[in-house]
């Protein structure tokens, strides 16, 4: 029981990072039908940006009190903002002109952008894993015999807060409504006076900023980052988005947490080498029985 809880908490922490990345995949897919393979690398970029900001602030070790709030806050918002800008630039430079091209063209472009980002990061921070300063004091609270670290609270708390804010934004604001309208029918939305280009750029801004948050969170959690991390994490987050129903925000979060928990439990019960197998087996099973994902609705076909 004790171990069950420990694994569950670990799975939720891991899953909250996947969920944050999965949101970006699902938002972009929802609005322009593109699987943005460069998204995983924007996530890695987020941890690199946080690292650079912390280095600028001179934060190399554990922080306390106001210094912790200010430095960590700046790193978090800075990484989110910079990633958001990178996302908008990627859309403007690489995807916008291909918006009406055959679907394969933007897909291949996305893979190309992914390579460009990876290599740029490799040039920036070198090809080896880079240590991330352990800024967070890490006392553990023991709940029902299970030690939960402050890091885990922060990781999960930040992820849930971000997701709630996103839900409020998409369902409660004019811009959110414009995004949903564009996702439903781009041409009709344009006829209603919605600026499509601006709305799509906004989607990339938000999706990439969430990846930036995930990058910061993973840096704090693992105290290490590497230019190639986005490949594996991106693949699993994409799986999470598909599992939850691609295009569906709540589905991406659910999928992310599920994948994290499955990975954790598979490692515990089946052994580490089976964790990826278990994750993808679950995906296949889910898609066989619910082709549009757990929370996805079958949309009427677009003409």
């Amino acid at each position: 029981m004790h171990e069950f809880l420990a694994q569950l908490i670990n799975g939720i922490s891991l899953g909250s990072i996947y969920a944050l990345i999965a949101l970006g995949y699902t938002m972009v897919y929802g609005i322009i039908g593109l699987i943005n393979f460069a998204h995983g690398d924007v996530y890695t970029l987020g941890s690199f940006f946080s690292l650079a900001i912390l280095a600028l602030l001179g934060a190399t070790g554990e922080l306390h009190g106001p210094a912790l709030l200010i430095d960590a806050g700046l790193a978090l918002f800075g990484a989110a903002l910079l990633c958001g800008i990178v996302g908008v630039l990627i859309e403007r430079l690489a995807y916008r002109r291909l918006r009406n091209a055959p679907r394969l063209a933007p897909l291949i472009t996305a893979i190309g952008v992914s390579f460009i980002l990876e290599n740029a990061m490799q040039v920036w921070k070198g090809p080896s894993p880079v240590p991330f300063p352990a800024i967070l004091p890490n006392p553990a609270v023991t709940v029902a015999g299970v030690a939960i670290s402050l890091q885990q609270f922060v990781v999960v708390g930040l992820a849930i807060a971000t997701m709630l804010a996103l839900q409020l934004f998409v369902h409660g604001t004019r811009m959110g409504r414009a995004m949903r309208a564009t996702a439903q029918d781009r041409d009709a939305a344009r006829l209603m006076g919605i600026d499509i280009n601006k709305t799509i750029a906004l989607t990339f801004l938000i999706g990439s900023a969430l990846a930036g948050v995930a990058g910061f969170v993973s840096g704090v959690y693992y105290q290490s980052t590497w230019f190639f991390n986005g490949f594996g994490a991106g693949l699993k987050a994409f799986t999470a988005a598909v599992l939850g129903g691609i295009g569906n925000l709540a589905g991406a979060m659910l999928g992310g947490f599920l994948i994290g928990i499955v990975e954790s439990f598979a490692t515990w019960l089946l052994g580490g080498q089976w964790s990826n197998v278990a994750v993808f087996a679950i995906l296949i099973l889910a898609l066989v029985f619910r082709p549009s994902g757990l929370l996805g609705e079958t949309l009427p076909e677009k003409v």
Partner: peptide, 17 residues
């Protein structure tokens, strides 16, 4: 005796076990 999966940076589940 456990074997690791590729492409992951989370070994905590294994270490909890």
């Amino acid at each position: 005796h456990d074997h690791l999966a590729q492409d992951t940076q989370d070994f905590k589940s294994l270490l909890i076990k």
